[in-house]
Measured scan of single mutants.
Amino acid sequence: AEKTGIVNVSSSLNAREGASTSSKVIGSLSGNTKVTIVGEEGAFYKIEYKGSHGYVAKEYIKDIKDE
């Protein structure tokens, strides 16, 4: 099942092309942005936001229960 997560940073969080800190940054998400978690790979979540996919470090995403 898809989960919703909240970007848990004070400034912004980089979204990357792949599940690695050396992957190209494809965008950034500001704190408290809601994202859909579609998968996980190592220390990263694969997320969907406004129709695009990217990878973000798990430690900066807070899971919330689907309402």
Rank of each mutant, 00 (worst) to 15 (best):
1 A>R: 13
1 A>V: 13
2 E>S: 15
2 E>Q: 15
3 K>S: 06
3 K>E: 02
3 K>G: 04
3 K>T: 07
3 K>D: 04
3 K>Y: 10
5 G>T: 03
5 G>S: 04
5 G>P: 02
5 G>E: 03
5 G>Y: 05
6 I>L: 08
6 I>F: 10
6 I>Y: 11
6 I>N: 04
7 V>T: 06
8 N>A: 13
9 V>W: 05
9 V>Q: 07
10 S>Y: 09
10 S>E: 12
10 S>V: 13
10 S>C: 15
10 S>T: 12
11 S>V: 13
12 S>L: 10
12 S>D: 09
12 S>Q: 10
12 S>G: 13
13 L>M: 06
13 L>R: 02
14 N>H: 14
15 A>L: 15
16 R>F: 15
17 E>F: 07
17 E>T: 06
17 E>G: 05
18 G>P: 02
18 G>H: 14
19 A>H: 04
19 A>L: 06
20 S>V: 04
21 T>N: 14
21 T>A: 13
21 T>W: 14
22 S>M: 10
22 S>Q: 11
23 S>V: 03
24 K>H: 06
24 K>R: 13
24 K>Y: 04
25 V>W: 05
25 V>S: 06
26 I>T: 03
27 G>A: 07
27 G>V: 08
28 S>F: 12
28 S>Q: 14
28 S>I: 14
29 L>V: 08
29 L>H: 01
30 S>A: 14
31 G>H: 14
31 G>A: 15
31 G>C: 14
31 G>S: 13
32 N>S: 08
32 N>A: 08
33 T>E: 10
33 T>Y: 05
33 T>F: 06
35 V>Y: 03
35 V>K: 00
35 V>S: 00
36 T>A: 07
36 T>M: 09
37 I>N: 00
37 I>L: 02
37 I>R: 00
37 I>P: 01
38 V>F: 05
38 V>P: 00
39 G>T: 01
39 G>W: 03
39 G>S: 06
40 E>L: 05
40 E>K: 03
40 E>Y: 04
40 E>A: 05
40 E>T: 06
40 E>S: 06
41 E>H: 07
41 E>C: 13
42 G>W: 01
42 G>E: 06
43 A>C: 13
44 F>R: 00
44 F>S: 01
44 F>P: 00
45 Y>I: 06
46 K>Q: 07
47 I>S: 01
47 I>V: 06
48 E>T: 09
49 Y>N: 00
49 Y>A: 00
50 K>L: 12
50 K>N: 14
50 K>D: 11
50 K>R: 08
51 G>D: 08
53 H>L: 10
53 H>Q: 08
54 G>N: 01
54 G>S: 06
54 G>Y: 12
54 G>T: 03
54 G>I: 09
55 Y>W: 12
55 Y>F: 11
56 V>H: 00
56 V>Y: 00
57 A>C: 14
58 K>S: 03
58 K>A: 02
59 E>Q: 10
60 Y>W: 08
60 Y>V: 04
61 I>V: 08
62 K>L: 11
62 K>I: 14
63 D>A: 10
63 D>T: 14
64 I>Q: 06
65 K>S: 13
67 E>D: 11
